[in-house]
């Protein structure tokens, strides 16, 4: 049976959402609606676009030089069937999985827990604006936890650092990921 996933955006290769180079997928739709969230555009389940999960997997497997995928959003665990299929399929082709969720473990149902336990790294917890810290690696606020699920990255050194990524596509389009400081936004406005 064909399965679909609602997406907000994707980036074929990024270096700031987990270890190494990763294919990044932002799913569309989040009912948590954390105050101060940076990705408010990804809350509505009406916005974004749907994609056949098999097509997405094939796009990922055709991407060179990536170590894994990162799924964030939106809230990935609000589309658990599709996300689980995605996780299991990319693991079969030797890629690692980093999963973001605003939920805490005790809030998850069986299927959602299966998504979590099938991943290699999980970043968990609501985004709390008052605890926002741009100096944290991979997280937006200090309450969010990094959980190593498998042993793939067990020994990785998480150097806390502020990271912003600027990508220039083949067509010259400039895109920005991460938490940019004002000086960088100002500099990019001059470009």
């Amino acid at each position: 049976m064909r399965q679909f996933i609602r997406l907000a955006d994707k980036l074929p290769s990024s270096q700031i959402y987990g270890p190494g180079h990763r294919f990044v997928i932002w799913v569309q739709g989040c009912s948590l609606e954390c105050p101060g969230c940076w990705n408010r555009d990804f809350w509505s389940v009406e916005a974004g676009y749907t994609m056949d999960v098999d097509l997405l997997i094939s796009e990922i497997s055709d991407t060179d030089d990536i170590n894994g995928i990162t799924i964030l959003g939106g809230e990935p665990l609000e589309q658990p069937e599709s996300v689980l299929k995605l996780i299991q399929s990319v693991k079969k082709i030797g890629l690692t999985v980093m999963l973001y969720s605003g939920y805490e473990e005790n809030e998850l149902n069986e299927l959602q827990l299966k998504c979590l336990n099938s991943s290699d790294i999980v970043i968990m917890g609501r985004y709390v604006a008052s605890l926002r810290d741009t100096g944290l690696r991979w997280r937006g606020s200090s309450n969010q936890k990094i959980k190593m699920i498998s042993d793939v990255y067990q020994n990785i050194d998480i150097n806390e650092q502020e990271e912003v990524e600027i990508t220039i596509g083949q067509d010259g389009k400039v895109s920005l990921a991460g938490y940019p400081q004002k000086w960088l936004l100002d500099a990019l406005n001059d470009i």
Binding site: S13, D62, D64, Q161, E162, E163, L184
Partner: peptide, 13 residues
């Protein structure tokens, strides 16, 4: 591959 020609800068502190 398909990404050839893309350029990425990571600003780190």
């Amino acid at each position: 591959g398909k990404n050839a020609g893309r350029e990425q800068y990571v600003v780190v502190k």
